[in-house]
């Protein structure tokens, strides 16, 4: 338990970064009108695939027109 507490300050920031990316992607997914491909698939990808999911969504999922 002590060991865990000692390492926590190092790992927590990374978890927060991951969560932030996911939350931003989810907010955007809710607000956006249309995505490339079905919305619910993107929702699954964003929530289930750590880190890569939101990035894939931002690069390929958003329609830029």
């Amino acid at each position: 338990m002590d060991a865990l507490l000692e390492h926590l300050p190092l790992i927590v920031p990374l978890v927060i970064v991951q969560l932030l990316l996911m939350i931003i992607a989810v907010i955007d997914l809710i607000r956006i009108e249309k995505t490339n491909g079905p919305k619910w698939v993107w929702a699954l990808v964003v929530v289930l695939v750590n880190l890569i999911g939101p990035i894939l969504y931002f690069i390929f999922g958003r329609r830029n027109d």
């Binding site: 990374l14 991951q18 932030l20 990316l21 931003i24 955007d28 880190l51 990035i55 931002f58």
Partner: peptide, 12 residues
């Protein structure tokens, strides 16, 4: 959102 997700990804 590029201004948020790109820096966060690089940070990670």
């Amino acid at each position: 959102f590029k201004v948020i997700w790109v820096p966060l990804t690089f940070l990670f």
